[in-house]
Amino acid sequence: MSVLLDVQDLQTRFQVRKGFVYAVNGVSFQLDQGDTLAVVGESGCGKSVTMLSLVRLLPPAASIESGQVLLRGEDLLQLNLRQLRDVRGGEIGMIFQDPMTSLNPFINIGTQMAEPLIYHRGMSKSEALARSAELLEMVGIPDGEARLREYPHQFSGGMRQRVMIAMSMSCEPAVLIADEPTTALDVTIQAQIVELVKELRDRSGVAVIWITHDLSVVAGIADRVIVMYAGYIVEEAPVDALFEDPRHPYTVGLMGALPSLAGETGTRLTTIGGSPPDLVDLPDFCPFHPRCPYAIDRCRKENPMLEPVIDASDGGHRAACWVDIREVELEAGAAAGSV
């Protein structure tokens, strides 16, 4: 399949009172047409900032220092604002974490949904409303026509997220960026939203970037996974390879924190102690080493690059770690438990 979105060496930092916080540090990844890429990591790992950087929706304090975001070969970072607006919503749709506050409370759903269609597709108001009603039914909201007149507060959280999905998909974008769209929802609703996006993806062929810290969602929807830590991609792999053969200690830690039906009862879930750092300097050490049970001296002196792993089951499996963690498995098991 052809490469749709090619992100090269993206760097984003925030201006703070004293200097900078480095949020995204040389992130590169590719997204194929119709593919689903999951981006995993704790809060504060740079997942959202990376995705907001793609369409330059960053807060004023943030600036993109370098890199390229090539959508079908065109660098989005070089576009002027007018061209960029055509990409936002037109080529790249986005869904956000909190559906309760993502809709304008002052405008009814119909008017709100019609706006991008009028703006991007040049539809008349009545055409746009007709299309919006269809879209509502498509995302599983029955009686779409009647509900167009209603206001956001008349919708439940799950319904609002469906509306957001319908809006972001309304102009048939090539890429859908979903920034933790299920985090704020009930578990049953979460599953429904995941299923909905899968269905829409399969029907429309949209490529999806799914940001989450929930690995169980990843297994169900993604083709490939990127694991981010402190603004770096620390591991990248096809979804099966990642789950069967994780090579970065952070990935292992995330999986250890995942409850499993197959696991023995009575065992404790492991946790990763501490939280991701805010980098005020670009590190000359592995940013994960303070929390890493596998850390060796080299981790404190050099920051590992993302490189293909040894004995990979898949060519696309890469990790950024000095240690081959398979060789220290037993010792590490004890160490991880003690963290």
Binding site: R85, F96, D98, T101, L103, N104, P105, I107, P116
Partner: peptide
């Protein structure tokens, strides 16, 4: 969030001001 969402949908600044911020 709805201002961010509107920007993510490519709405122009003027429209965001008149439809989202001012009301």
């Amino acid at each position: 969030n709805y201002v961010l969402a509107a920007r993510a949908l490519g709405m122009p600044t003027g429209r965001i001001l008149t439809r989202y911020v001012i009301p």
